[in-house]
Simulated assay, not measured.
Amino acid sequence: MKKRNPIISVIIVVVLIAIVAVGGLIYQTNNHKNEAKEDTKQKVLKIGATGTSFPTAYKSKGKLVGFDVDVINAAAKKAGYKVQWVTGEFDGLLGQLDNNKLDTVANDVAITPERKAKYKFSNIYNKEETTVAVNKDSDYNTLNDLEGKTIAGASASNNTKNLQDYNSKIKFKLYDARDVTFQALLAGHVDGVVNTRNNLEALIKAKNYPWKVVKGSAATVNIALPFRKDDSESAKILKKLNPAINKLKEDRTLKKLSEKYFGYDATADLK
């Protein structure tokens, strides 16, 4: 039997090692490409809003705009996300969030004890006071003047609950949608309408409604984005989105947007 040339053996070993090394490199490259693809998939956030909540999330000339909408679009951009907006009734949007059909809801969502127990909230981006608007020519000037009077409120709104807790002598007429509560006061069916001071002041100015906002507040609430608890994808989003919201405070974007939609800086006291 002929002996194999040692040089040929060495060449064979070198070639085999090279093949293994190249194979490993190709695997790593493909693996990184797959990871990059996965990263790209999560670049779109599905966010819910009613599209009828002036001045926080409403449609103007067919485009969804408002304080919450502009804030979240700006924060998402800083965090490297694109936003896909989904509109619907408020309760239905929270249901879609619960069922993994939305990533979050940006529609004046107040942090309440009940919601805090259920959701993980983002950093706060707005602060609001619960109060009441009445007809300008009425004799009602404070919240306590409304004892025994009927106030329109949205059934699912934390503002309605805040006022109920504040003064049990105030009567309520509840409606499914927030816009209907405004129409109830315009039509004279109620003595006032409960909402946040920010929203009521902006509504009066923009729509020229013959209303005034009474003195006093039933509660102060913080506004943020709700996310599913114990959800790894939500945790990833929050990790990117919270620093972006902080940057909007630092670069005064929140202040500018607040002045644009509310007529004053409602974010001055944010921590």
Results as ranks from 00 to 15, higher is better:
5 N>G: 08
7 I>G: 07
7 I>V: 15
9 S>C: 04
9 S>W: 06
15 V>R: 12
16 L>V: 07
16 L>A: 13
17 I>S: 15
18 A>N: 06
19 I>Y: 08
19 I>S: 11
21 A>N: 08
22 V>T: 04
22 V>R: 05
22 V>C: 05
24 G>Y: 11
30 N>Y: 11
33 K>T: 12
33 K>R: 14
33 K>C: 11
35 E>T: 14
40 T>S: 02
40 T>I: 07
41 K>T: 07
41 K>Y: 13
43 K>L: 05
44 V>W: 11
45 L>D: 01
45 L>Y: 11
47 I>V: 06
48 G>Q: 05
49 A>Q: 07
51 G>K: 02
55 P>E: 06
56 T>W: 08
57 A>V: 10
60 S>Q: 12
62 G>P: 09
64 L>V: 02
67 F>I: 04
82 K>E: 09
82 K>M: 12
83 V>F: 00
86 V>N: 13
88 G>F: 15
93 L>Q: 07
93 L>I: 03
96 Q>V: 07
100 N>C: 00
100 N>W: 03
100 N>R: 03
103 D>R: 01
104 T>L: 02
108 D>P: 01
108 D>S: 11
108 D>F: 01
111 I>W: 10
112 T>G: 00
114 E>D: 13
114 E>T: 05
116 K>D: 10
120 K>Y: 09
120 K>T: 15
121 F>C: 08
122 S>P: 03
122 S>D: 05
124 I>P: 06
129 E>C: 03
131 T>G: 00
139 D>H: 11
139 D>F: 01
141 N>Y: 12
143 L>H: 02
145 D>Q: 03
150 T>G: 00
152 A>K: 02
152 A>F: 15
153 G>R: 01
156 A>D: 10
158 N>H: 12
161 K>M: 07
161 K>S: 08
163 L>D: 10
164 Q>K: 12
168 S>N: 03
181 T>I: 02
184 A>P: 14
184 A>E: 02
186 L>V: 00
191 D>M: 06
191 D>L: 08
191 D>A: 00
195 N>H: 03
196 T>K: 11
204 I>A: 00
212 K>Q: 10
212 K>T: 09
213 V>Y: 02
214 V>S: 14
220 T>F: 02
222 N>Q: 09
223 I>V: 01
228 R>F: 09
229 K>D: 01
229 K>C: 09
233 E>N: 09
237 I>H: 08
240 K>D: 05
241 L>W: 04
251 D>K: 04
252 R>Y: 06
257 L>T: 03
260 K>S: 14
265 D>Q: 07
266 A>R: 13
268 A>R: 03
271 K>A: 02
